[in-house]
Structure formats: structure tokens, C-alpha cells
């Protein structure tokens, strides 16, 4: 029996406490890498080669939208699913926007571990 290879999740968020705890929660199921400096996130992604990227929207120096554009413009990363995490949106807004920000799916903080996993699974399979 061959163990299923863990999927690689890159989490880009400047909230150190959050990234530490989300890593703890996801580590059993996924191979998680955290990047707290958005300006280093592209390089990290190129090196880490994630299967999915969780991207905070509001970050200092480089916001999630800009970073998503750079990722999409990078050949080896352009097919990687990106899910935004935002602390600035109400869940109703998520619904009214069809769950999308700039064409990317997003989750409104605070999100439970269960919902986060469900979302990750959904987009890993798509």
C-alpha cells in the first residue's frame, strides 16, 4: 500500500499567530509552508511548488490581489489554485459576489478549520 502523497499548501499571511495555528491544524493532512512576508511569497511559491495557495488579501507592502497577479503570470504557477482569505469582507458580500474576488474564490475570516479544509479539498479536486 502506497501512502498518498500529501498535497502542498502555501499559506501567505502576515498574521504570524494565524499562520502558526493554521499550520498546526492542517499539518496532519497537508504539507504546509507558511510565508509571512508577501514580497517573498512568489519566490517561496516557485521553490515550494504548492498544489494550492491560501492568500491573505490585506497585507503590508504587497496585497493579495497583486501577488495573485504575479503568481498567475509565472508559468510554472499559473495553474495553481489560489483561495483568498479576507478579514475585510462580510460573509453576505462573499455570497453576493458569488464567492469570488477578482475571479478567485475566497473565504471570509474567521473561518473554521472544517470550512477551510472543505474549501481546500474542493479546489484541489477542481
Amino acid at each position: 500500500m502506497t501512502a498518498m502523497k500529501k498535497k502542498r499548501i502555501l499559506i501567505v499571511d502576515d498574521e504570524v499567530g494565524f499562520t502558526r495555528l493554521v499550520s498546526l491544524n492542517l499539518a496532519y493532512q497537508y504539507f504546509v509552508r507558511v510565508e509571512n512576508s508577501p514580497e517573498q511569497a512568489l519566490a517561496a511559491a516557485q521553490e515550494f511548488k504548492p498544489d494550492l495557495i491560501l492568500l491573505d488579501v490585506m497585507m503590508p507592502k504587497l496585497d493579495g490581489g497583486e501577488l495573485a497577479s504575479q503568481i498567475r503570470a509565472t508559468a510554472e504557477l499559473k495553474a495553481v489554485p489560489i483561495v483568498f482569505l479576507t478579514a475585510a469582507a462580510a460573509s453576505r458580500e462573499v455570497n453576493s459576489r458569488g464567492g469570488q474576488i477578482g475571479g478567485f474564490p475566497f473565504l471570509a475570516k474567521p473561518v473554521s478549520v472544517a470550512d477551510l479544509r472543505a474549501c481546500i479539498e474542493k479546489h484541489l479536486q477542481s
Partner: peptide
């Protein structure tokens, strides 16, 4: 929301 998120996690 960010601290809430951390607490929830």
C-alpha cells in the same frame, strides 16, 4: 477578524 481567526484556529 484576524485575532478572531487566530483564536478560532
Amino acid at each position: 477578524k484576524n485575532p478572531l481567526q487566530t483564536i478560532l484556529m
